[in-house]
Design a protein around this nucleic acid. Structure first.
Lengths: 110, 110
DNA sequence: TATTATATATAAGTTTATTATATATATTTT
DNA sequence: AAAATATATATAATAAACTTATATATAATA
């Protein structure tokens, strides 16, 4: 498992990127996909995921559609246009961040 | 500048690694070194740095010595033995985290 | 003399995530 | 058939981490 304090600040980016790659998804599906892609090392909790999804919706980055699978409700999330371009920025920013932090964390002088 | 929410959770690791590479350092020096190594992209604020240093000290990862440069006080921080081995772990953990998150953030299917 | 750089530190407030809890249906195992 | 597990969303209380604001003081430079 990934030390969870490192994950802080990346949760939103993860969610956005998954929606960008997979089209519409629902909450439970997102957690399963993250687990799969990270070979079990990242597990999103619902207590963290839903507030993020609701915030993204409030900020206009995603929209929702509710569907019924039998009697069970399922809420699909889809990126808006602004959400899509914002996702690109956030992902680029993450890799910039890694490059920059590597300058700091790689050196090991004599 | 690096988006600061991404930096969350890495601050401690940055401080530890700098101390591991440079021997004893004082707070102000640490902020300057981070700025230098990151080519100006990461700027630690004191409000974030000092609580981290105090916590590391309380946890036994670093020790302090106070010196006077003229009339001005300067507080040097040095890694303890446990602090040193913990630093290695934290840095490794960071790069593991990057590898894992890359699995999630890199894919872009049709 | 005024400004900037050096130097440490705390407190209030905000954001973000964790843990606990609530609710309910569908499927699989015993 | 009953029990357990998986599917599915959501909120509330709490805790952790960081930001912003503030306080204090000396040294060097313009």
């Amino acid at each position: 498992m990934i030390a969870n304090d490192l994950l802080k600040g990346t949760l939103r980016t993860i969610v956005l990127k998954l929606l960008a790659d997979n089209g519409r998804m629902y909450g439970y599906e997102i957690t399963k996909k993250v687990e799969e892609l990270s070979t079990g090392k990242i597990k999103l909790t619902f207590g963290a995921l839903y507030p993020v999804l609701h915030k993204l919706e409030a900020d206009g980055h995603i929209t929702t559609e509710t569907e019924y699978i039998g009697k069970r409700v399922r809420k699909y999330y889809t990126l808006t246009e602004t959400g899509r371009s914002w996702t690109e920025q956030r992902v680029d920013e993450f890799f910039d961040f890694v490059t920059t932090l590597t300058y700091v964390l790689k050196p090991t002088p004599a």
